Simulated assay, not measured.
Amino acid sequence: MEEQITQTKTLTLQPVTEADYVEVVDLINAATRSFVGHNIVTLNEFATDLNTLDLNPAKDTCVVRVTDGEPLAYADFWAGAEPHVRMFGFVRIHPQHKGEGVGTAITGWLESRAAQELTTAPDGLRVTLGMRAYGVQSNAQAFLDSCGYKHVRSNYRMTIELDGSIPEPVFPAGIVLHTIQPDEADLRRALQAEQEAFLDHYGAIPEPFETYFQRRKNMLLHDETVDLSACFMALDGEQVAGADFNAISLADDQETGWVGSLSVRRPWRKQGLGLALLRNAFREMHQRGRKRVGLFVDAESLTGALGLYQLAGMHVQYETRYFEKELQPGKDIANIG
Rank of each mutant, 00 (worst) to 15 (best):
E2C: 03
Q7P: 01
T8F: 09
K9L: 05
K9P: 00
L11P: 04
T12R: 11
Q14T: 06
V16C: 14
D20Y: 13
V22E: 15
E23F: 06
T32R: 12
T32Y: 07
F35I: 06
V36A: 07
G37R: 08
E45R: 11
A47Y: 00
N51Y: 05
N56G: 05
D60N: 13
D60G: 10
T61W: 12
C62I: 11
V64Y: 08
V66S: 12
P71V: 03
F77M: 00
A79H: 03
G80P: 05
E82Y: 04
P83S: 04
H84T: 06
G89S: 09
V91I: 15
I93T: 14
P95N: 08
E100H: 09
G101D: 09
I106A: 06
G108P: 02
G108T: 08
W109D: 09
L110N: 08
A115G: 14
E117A: 10
T120W: 10
A121P: 02
A121E: 05
T128F: 07
M131A: 12
G135Y: 12
Q137A: 15
Q137W: 13
A140Y: 14
L144P: 04
S146I: 06
C147I: 00
V152H: 13
S154Q: 09
S154D: 09
N155I: 05
R157M: 15
M158H: 08
T159I: 14
E161R: 13
E161M: 11
L162V: 13
I166H: 10
P172T: 13
P172Y: 12
G174A: 08
V176S: 00
H178W: 02
P182T: 06
P182A: 03
L187K: 03
L191S: 04
L191R: 04
Q192L: 01
A193R: 03
L199H: 04
H201A: 13
Y202F: 15
Y202Q: 13
I205L: 01
E207A: 05
F209L: 02
F209H: 01
Q214Y: 06
M219V: 03
L220M: 09
D223P: 01
E224K: 04
E224H: 00
V226Y: 01
A234T: 00
D236P: 02
D236Y: 08
G237W: 13
G237V: 14
E238M: 02
A243H: 01
D244H: 10
D244T: 10
D244V: 01
N246Y: 04
A247F: 03
E255D: 15
T256W: 05
G257I: 11
G257S: 10
S261Y: 07
S263C: 09
V264T: 06
W268F: 14
Q271L: 15
G274M: 09
G274E: 07
G274I: 03
R279D: 10
R283G: 02
E284Y: 04
R288Q: 10
F296M: 11
E300G: 11
L302K: 11
Y309M: 12
Q310R: 13
A312T: 02
Q317Y: 04
Y318D: 07
E319N: 08
F323E: 04
E326N: 07
K331H: 12
I336M: 15
I336K: 15
G337M: 01
G337P: 07
